[in-house]
Design a protein around this nucleic acid. Structure first.
Lengths: 343, 343
DNA sequence: CTGAAAGCGCTTACAG
DNA sequence: CTGAAAGCGCTTACAG
C-alpha cells in the first residue's frame, strides 16, 4: 500500500496539516519539526497522490479557454477534435473548457474573445495566435497582469510570455519539403511556385522560409517565385495557379503550404500540366489522400493536429491542476511524410 | 458549477446512496423512485466526476502487470519508456504497475512471469506475446478463469480472448515497404532478400507477409528469397548477408524487418555492394538515422514504440479505474515513413 | 508555530 | 427498498 500523508503524520508524531505545510513549503513550521517530517517522508518514499489534490482543486472550478481561428480547413477539424477529447477529460475531473472560434486572421475578434474569456475567469488559454502586435501584447498582459498562462498551438509567436508552444517545427517542415522536392526534380534548373494561406500565420511563413532556405542550399539554380496567398480558398488558389502558368510555361513544381489544393490541381489538369508539375502539399486530409493515390500530389508533409489540440489543453491542465509546468518551451510534433503507400 | 450526486439527491428527495444505486444500476430501488432520479439526473445534465470514483478505486490498490521480451533492440527501449511514463501516471493515482522482462521468445519464462504476476494479484496484463500455443492458452485462462484482462502490445495474437491490441498494423507496414521498394527499383526483375528476427513474433511475420503479398501484386517478376532469421543480432545478420551475397551476386535489395542493420550494412560495404543494394529497414533508432543520412538505408518504415507502451498500460488503467472498455479491438499506430529529410 | 475539523464527489458496508 | 455514516488522500480555514 502506498504511503499517505497520514502515515507520515503518525510516524513523525505531528498532524496531517503540519505534514502538508512541510511538504508543500507553506512555511510556519519549526525547523526541527520540518526536518523530522522531511526525513520520515523520504524514508517512507512518499509520493503525493494526485487524486486527493485534484479533488480539492475542483472547488476552484478551474477554467481553461481555447481560441481557434476558423480556417475551414481539414487541419482545423483535427485540431478541434483533439481539443474536444481533452475537454472531455478535463471536465471528467471537474474542470471547464470554453472553446471560442474567430474568423481566420481576425485580430479584433481574437482580442474580443480573449477579453470575454478573461471575464469568464479562465486560468489558462490555448491560443491559435495571429502574428499581430496587439495580440502579442495581449498575450503578455494575460500572463503578467492577469496571471493567465497562455499556450500557443499550431503557430508560435516567439518573444512573448506564452509558456509553451505545441505544434510543428514549421521551418523543418519546409526543409523536408525542399529535400523531397529536390529528390524528385533532380535537374539543376527549374521554376517552383509557392502558394500559401495568409501572411500573419507564422506556421505558414516558417514553412516557406525553411523551404526557400533549404532549396537555395541544395539546389541553388532553382528559381523560387514570390509567394502567393490564397487564404485557404480553392477559387483563389485556382486563379493564382492560372496566372502563374500563364507567366511561367515551364513551371516544374508547386509547393502549397495551406488548403486550396483542389483549386491548384483543377487548374493544372485544365492546362494538361498535371504530369509536368510536381506538387508537394501539407494538409493530411481525405481529399489530399485521394490526390496522393492518383499521383496528382507527390508527397504530403503533415502534422498531427489532433494530438496538438489535445496536448495544448492538457499542458494547461497539468499546470493548473497538478502544478506541473511544461518540460519544454517547444513541444514539436512529428513531421509526417505521406506517400501513396502509407496513407 | 458541475452537477453532483448530492444535488440530484436533494432535487429528487432521496439520499445520495439511492442516487448511486440508480445511476450505477445496482438495483434494489423502487421503480418510481428510480424513474424520478433518472429524470432529475438527465435534466441537470449529470456527468459523474471520475475523481470521486477513482479515490475509492484506490482502496482496491489495483495492480497492472507488464511482460516484455528483452530483445535488446532500440525499439524495446522506446516501448519501455512509454510504459514507464504510464507507470508514473497510474501510480500518481494510487495504482501499481509491475514490469517483468523475459528473454526474447522464451515461452517458459513468459509463462512463469504470468504466473508470478497472477500471484501478485494483478487485475490487468500488458503482454508482448509469443505466438506459442501455451502462451495463447494462458491468455485465455487469464481472461476467463482469473478475470485478468490482457492487452497485447507490439505483436498481436488473434483468436485469443485478449481485449485489445496496441501496435502497428504490421501487414500494412510490409505493404508500405513493398510500395516504396518498387518505387526505387523500378525495373521489372530483381532479387530481394528478407531478413527477419524470429519466427514466433507475429509483428515480424506479418510484415513479411504484407511485403511479399504486395510485391507479388505490383512487381510480379521480382524474386523474393526465403526469409532468413538473425535473432536481432548483428553478427548473425552479417553472416546471413554474406551467404546471400555469395549465392546471389545480382541482389537488388534487402528488406530488414528487425534489428541487425549494422551487420547487414557492414557486410555490404565489405563487398562494395552498398550502392547497388537498396535497403529498407524498420527500427527508428539513432543508428538507422545515421544510415539514412549517409544513404546506406533508403527508407525506414517505423512505429512509435513509446506511444504504444504508454497506450497499452493506459488502456488497462481506463478499464480498471474508470470502467471504460477500449473502443477498438485494434489500436493501430501510424506507419511512420522516415527519409533522410524528416528524421 | 501546530492541531482538529471539515470537506472535495463518490461508493461501501451497515442498519433499518 | 432506503438512509445515515464513514472513508478514499489531500488541503483549507479556523482556533489556539
Amino acid at each position: 500500500m502506498r504511503v499517505t500523508i497520514r502515515q507520515i503524520a503518525e510516524e513523525s508524531g505531528v498532524s496531517r496539516g503540519t505534514v502538508d505545510r512541510v511538504l508543500n513549503n507553506r512555511g510556519k513550521v519549526r525547523p526541527e519539526v520540518e526536518e523530522r517530517v522531511r526525513k520520515v517522508a523520504e524514508e517512507l518514499g512518499y509520493k503525493p497522490n494526485l487524486l486527493g489534490r485534484a479533488l480539492i482543486k475542483m472547488k476552484e472550478n478551474i477554467k481553461i479557454g481555447v481560441i481557434l481561428q476558423d480556417t475551414g480547413t481539414p487541419y482545423l477539424k483535427t485540431l478541434s477534435d483533439g481539443i474536444k477529447k481533452a475537454k472531455g477529460e478535463v471536465e471528467d475531473f471537474g474542470g471547464t473548457v470554453i472553446v471560442k472560434a474567430v474568423d481566420y486572421g481576425n485580430v479584433e475578434q481574437t482580442l474580443a474573445a480573449m477579453n470575454k474569456l478573461k471575464e469568464a475567469g479562465i486560468k489558462g488559454l490555448v491560443l491559435m495566435p495571429i502574428n499581430d502586435k496587439r495580440v502579442l501584447q495581449k498575450i503578455d498582459q494575460f500572463t503578467e497582469e492577469y496571471g493567465i498562462s497562455v499556450v500557443t498551438v499550431n503557430a508560435d509567436v516567439e518573444d512573448t510570455k506564452r509558456i509553451c508552444f505545441v505544434g510543428q517545427n514549421s521551418v523543418q517542415s519546409g526543409r523536408a519539403a525542399a529535400g523531397l522536392m529536390h529528390d524528385i526534380l533532380r535537374e539543376e534548373e527549374g521554376t517552383i511556385a509557392v502558394i500559401s494561406g495568409i501572411e500573419t500565420n507564422t506556421s505558414l511563413s516558417d514553412r516557406i522560409y525553411g523551404f526557400c532556405d533549404e532549396m537555395k542550399k541544395i539546389s541553388p539554380k532553382t528559381e523560387i517565385l514570390d509567394t502567393k496567398y490564397c487564404f485557404e480558398d480553392d477559387l483563389i488558389a485556382a486563379h493564382l495557379t492560372e496566372s502563374i502558368l500563364n507567366r511561367y510555361e515551364d513551371l516544374s513544381a508547386i509547393y502549397i503550404t495551406c488548403h486550396g489544393e483542389k483549386g491548384v490541381c483543377d487548374t493544372l489538369r485544365k492546362h494538361k500540366k498535371m504530369k509536368k508539375v510536381t506538387i508537394i502539399a501539407c494538409d493530411l486530409s481525405r481529399q489530399n489522400y485521394r490526390y496522393l493515390k492518383n499521383g496528382d500530389i507527390k508527397y504530403l508533409i503533415g502534422q498531427d493536429g489532433r494530438y496538438q489540440g489535445y496536448e495544448a489543453v492538457m499542458t494547461l491542465y497539468r499546470l493548473l491542476f497538478n502544478d506541473e509546468p511544461p518540460k519544454k518551451e517547444h513541444k514539436y510534433t512529428d513531421i509526417i511524410v505521406k506517400t501513396k503507400y502509407n496513407i
